[in-house]
Design a protein around this nucleic acid. Structure first.
Lengths: 166, 166
DNA sequence: CGCGAATGGTTACAATTGAAACTATACTCC
DNA sequence: GGAGTATAGTTTCAATTGTAACCATTCGCG
C-alpha cells in the first residue's frame, strides 16, 4: 500500500500542544515504572518477593495483626491482590495467619520470624535505592518533592472520586 | 491457630524508618496509577482506546510515518506492546500502514482521517485532566515538578542501565 | 556472492492482573 | 428468631502483559 505525502508535519497542530514527553501523567508513568522495575528486580532476584508481597511485608512489619482488608487499605492494593500476596507469603512461611475470635471472617496477619528476617534485609536495600535515586536532588528539592507528591495525590484521588460518584 | 502477643509494636524498629507512606517509589506508583486510571478511564469510555493505543496515536499525530520501533522508542513501550496497539488501531481503521520501499521489514505508520479526528478530540481532554491535576500547584511549583521529574527519570534510567550491564 | 549476525516485527505461551461471582460469617431490624 | 443486607476473603474466568521463540529481510564482510 502507498501513502500519499503527509499533510501533517511534526509542528502541525500548534493549537494542541500535546507532546508526550511534556505530558505529566505520561512522565509519571514512565518514571514510576522505571523505578519499580529497578527495585522490584532486586527483591525478586534476592528474595523471591513480588511487589505486592513486599508491600504486605512492609506494612505488617510496622503494623502487626492487621486483617487483609486493613492491609489493603494501607497498601493501596485491592483485596484480591492482598489475598494472593498473603497466600504466597503463607506458602513461603513468611506470614502467620490467625482468625479473630469475635469475628471469624477477619484474619489476623503477622510476620513470622522468617518474614521479619526478610524485612530486616529488604528494608535497608529498598532505602538505599531510594537514597541513591534522591541523591540527584538537593535536600530542599527533596522536601519540595514530598510536598508536590502529597498535593498531587490528594488532587488525583479527589478527581477520581468525583468521577466515580457522578 | 493462636498468635502470641506481638513483640513488634508499630514504633518498634526505630533503626529502619521504612514507612510505606514515606517511601518515594511507592508514592510514585500510587500517584501514577491513580492518575492513569483516571485519564485512561476517560479514553476507554469515550473512544475505546487503551493506554498503549493512545500513546501510539499521540506520537503519530506529531511524527507521522514512523516505523513501529521508532514509535516504541518515543513511547517507552516495547515492540510487542506497539505491535499489539498498532494491530488494534489498524482494526479500528485509525492507523494506516505502508512498508518502506528500501527496507521491506520497516513499516510506515500514519494516522488515518479517523485517527486524526480521535486525536483532535482526545488531546484536549487529556490536557484538561492534566491542567486540573496541576491546578493544585503554583506556576513555580509546576516548573519545579518538571525539573524534578526530569532529573529523577535520568537518574532512574542510569541506575537501571548500570544494574543491567553488570 | 553467500553465510552468519543483526534488525523489524509477529506469534505463541506463560504469568499477572482485574472483575465478577461465590462462600462464610456477621449485622440490622422487624 | 429470621429475612435481607453487608463484610471478609477466596475462587474463577477473562483480559492484559511479559518473555521467548520465531519469520522475513537486510547487513557485514570474508
Amino acid at each position: 500500500m502507498e501513502l500519499a505525502p503527509s499533510m501533517n508535519a511534526a509542528d502541525d497542530p500548534p493549537d494542541n500542544p500535546l507532546h508526550l514527553d511534556r505530558f505529566i501523567p505520561y512522565r509519571l508513568s514512565v518514571l514510576s515504572n522505571t523505578v519499580s522495575m529497578l527495585i522490584a528486580g532486586a527483591y525478586e532476584r534476592e528474595f523471591g518477593l513480588s511487589i505486592p508481597q513486599w508491600r504486605v511485608i512492609a506494612v505488617l512489619a510496622r503494623y502487626p495483626d492487621l486483617s487483609a482488608v486493613e492491609v489493603a487499605e494501607r497498601t493501596a492494593m485491592d483485596k484480591v491482590a492482598v489475598s494472593r500476596a498473603v497466600q504466597g507469603l503463607l506458602d513461603s512461611k513468611r506470614v502467620l495467619r490467625a482468625y479473630d475470635k469475635g469475628d471469624r471472617r477477619r484474619s489476623i496477619l503477622r510476620l513470622s520470624a522468617a518474614g521479619q528476617s526478610v524485612y530486616q534485609r529488604v528494608a535497608p536495600l529498598a532505602l538505599r535505592y531510594e537514597e541513591e535515586l534522591l541523591s540527584v536532588l538537593s535536600a530542599s528539592d527533596q522536601r519540595v518533592l514530598d510536598r508536590l507528591l502529597h498535593r498531587l495525590l490528594e488532587k488525583a484521588q479527589s478527581m477520581a472520586i468525583i468521577r466515580a460518584v457522578q
